[in-house]
Design a protein around this nucleic acid. Sequence first.
DNA 1: GGTTTGACCATAA
DNA 2: CTTATGGCCAAAC
Length: 107
Amino acid sequence: MNFRQRVYALVRLIPSGRVLAYGDVATALGSPRAARQVGYALAALGDDTVPWHRVVRKSGHIAHGGEPGRAPLQRVLLEAEGVVFDAGHVDMARHRWQPEAGDVAGV
DNA sequence: GGTTTGACCATAA
DNA sequence: CTTATGGCCAAAC
């Protein structure tokens, strides 16, 4: 399976109110240094069947996409799920989700 | 095949 | 706090 498809599959498993860093997704897929590919995969994402807004930077800050208006939208979607924003960034220590072994195996 | 690119990350100043 | 630099891996050309 392509790397991008694996990214989509894993992101779909993120529960509501939880977030993951690009690097965390890459690590869960077995390539800890492929954080850029995760963002690349989400950028090429056409369908909205994937909760892409639950993926942020490791700092908890929202990534600067080339598409204008995407960042504010992402924040709104996260806050709607109960994610707490502190000084413009997500509290990662509080909302970071850790994928379980069974979840990644199913992909 | 080589080269470019990018919703990243870590480090340093 | 900001800016700069290098590395990284997969996809696209």
